[in-house]
């Protein structure tokens, strides 16, 4: 859909941002020196921008090691996988450990098909990711 009216374009941008917030909930907490970022909902082309931005800011804040809690994630596409990989590289560049926990259902299958299970440190849950450090 082509949009040439700047006002229409701005409104569309705003409604896209609102939609992204509804489709993916992000929350952060500290746990024994690890930063736990929990994702709930969908990590797709619509929501990935928000995740990438928030995750990068969070890693840059340098609060230590990072674990993504994906136990509430129902859907991930290749756009989401690329962003997770980017986050892992960013954490490594800052000498922080990066782990992924709680894969289930379709998300687990997508990680397996993509070969990401061997590229990233993956744990059944957040507790075991932290315990392994």
């Amino acid at each position: 859909m082509a949009m040439f009216d700047p006002q229409e374009r701005e409104e569309a941008g705003r409604s896209m941002a609102t939609r992204a917030e509804r489709l993916l909930e992000l929350s952060e907490r500290d746990d024994q020196g690890w930063s736990v970022l929990a994702l709930k909902g969908r990590l797709d082309s619509v929501t990935v921008g928000r995740f990438t931005e928030r995750c990068a800011a969070w890693i840059d804040a340098g609060r230590g090691n990072v674990v993504l809690d994906l136990s509430g994630l129902d859907y991930v596409s290749s756009a989401g996988l690329s962003s997770i990989l980017g986050a892992a590289k960013r954490a490594q560049e800052r000498n922080a450990r990066f782990a992924v926990a709680g894969l289930k259902g379709l998300v687990k299958e997508v990680f397996a098909i993509s070969g990401f299970e061997t590229v990233l440190s993956i744990f059944p849950d957040v507790e075991s990711a932290i315990a392994a450090s």
């Binding site: 859907y75 596409s77 259902g105 379709l106 997508v110």
Partner: peptide, 16 residues
């Protein structure tokens, strides 16, 4: 439902 989610993913990947 699970197959609809998978179809959804196929559509997203191709549209992208």
């Amino acid at each position: 439902g699970e197959k609809v989610a998978r179809l959804d993913l196929a559509i997203e990947e191709w549209a992208t």
